Simulated assay, not measured.
Amino acid sequence: MQDYLAQLADYGKILLRSDGSSLDGIFSTMESSRGEALRSARKALRLTQQQVADKIGVTRAAVGQWENDEPISFPNLKAVCEALGIDVVAAVSGKVVKAYSGAAIASREKAFVKPEIASSTPMDPELYDENYFVKKSLVPVYMMSTIDNFAPNGNALLSEAPVLLAPRHESVPPDNSIYLIAQTNNVMEPIFEPNISFYASSRHTPIVGEYVIAQVSFDRTYAPGKRPTGILLLPVYFGKLEEFTNSSIVISQINPKSHHTVPLNMISALHSVLGPE
């Protein structure tokens, strides 16, 4: 099992440092960000933001925020990509690629599946089933890496959407909210060592003493030419939940030893980590 998880982490490091050249021929048109990819696809179809919003049942303002690289949930990302007829995985990487037909998806999977790792299958008709991942025996895989100067908050970075779908191990509970994190940072070493993957849940309510991931909001105003490209990584705090009050939470990390007090109004999501394998 651990060999399999280590393989995911190694694959994730390749994705994170890739300049996109290894994907030539799969995703052909590079944009500068996920939001600009969505905007380019919408304009190519001559649709207004309101028309896209009406297609998926959200507000025009939400579509505008997504096109400006504001946070977007994975279900909403899938919905807007389906409305625009573009590939979900490509959009996350800032590229506009027409959605594959079923035959093309099968062909692409056959060519690009890593050992024991299944590639994503966007545009599946059953994608919106609330038990989709359990029924398909898959688990979404997110990447976590070290913090950088694009995000002043947090102690780690987490991919905004899954980088791939992996086969669901028999030990994983039948819970659709569970996802796998392949991480390369060391803020919780030695409990969570670099390259050791672990599971988390978006449904389980964390309690004091548990390990958590707190996603935080941040200012996405980048200097000219400094907008990050490729996989969009969001700032998070990863560590042990030490305290929970009406106004903030306190998360501790091990390496280096530190405590982070995070105001609740800064937290966009708080997920429970199921512990290292």
Rank of each mutant, 00 (worst) to 15 (best):
V88M: 12
P140L: 02
M143G: 10
A103P: 10
V96H: 06
F150R: 14
D148W: 08
D148V: 04
E116D: 14
T121Q: 10
A90E: 09
S120Q: 12
I72L: 10
V141A: 12
I72M: 13
F112H: 15
S145I: 11
P122D: 01
D124S: 01
G102P: 06
M144K: 02
M143D: 10
D69P: 02
I147E: 07
V141I: 10
N149R: 15
R108E: 05
G102A: 10
C81S: 04
M123N: 14
V63Y: 08
L77Y: 09
V141M: 11
F133L: 04
D124H: 05
A79L: 08
G64D: 09
Y128A: 10
P125K: 01
D69A: 07
A79T: 02
G64L: 09
V92M: 15
E70F: 14
K95E: 09
R108H: 11
G94K: 05
A151W: 12
V113N: 15
V92D: 14
I72H: 11
K98L: 06
A99N: 06
V97D: 13
Y100M: 14
N68G: 12
Y100V: 04
M123F: 06
A106Y: 04
S145R: 15
K135W: 00
E70R: 15
C81K: 06
S137G: 02
K78R: 13
T121N: 07
P140I: 01
S120G: 13
N131F: 11
A104C: 00
A103G: 09
F74P: 15
S93P: 00
W66L: 07
G102E: 12
M143E: 07
A106G: 08
S120L: 05
Q65A: 15
Y132F: 05
V96S: 06
K136L: 02
C81M: 01
I147N: 11
V89D: 12
I86T: 07
K136D: 00
G94W: 03
G64M: 03
S137E: 10
L127T: 02
A104S: 06
Q65R: 15
V92H: 15
A90Y: 04
E82A: 14
A106E: 14
V113G: 13
L84G: 04
A99H: 01
N153Y: 10
G154P: 00
Y100I: 07
I147A: 13
K78G: 08
S107G: 13
T146W: 05
E116T: 14
G64S: 11
V97F: 06
L84A: 05
E130L: 08
E130Y: 08
G85P: 00
P75R: 05
N149I: 12
E70Q: 15
E109D: 08
G94T: 08
P75M: 02
V139L: 00
D148Y: 09
V88N: 07
D148R: 08
G102H: 11
P122S: 01
V63N: 10
S119R: 14
N149D: 15
A118C: 07
P125G: 03
G154C: 02
A79W: 04
A83K: 12
M143F: 11
R108G: 04
S93F: 14
A118L: 12
E109M: 07
I72P: 08
S93A: 15
G154Q: 06
S137D: 10
I105Y: 01
E67T: 07
A106L: 09
S120I: 02
A111W: 00
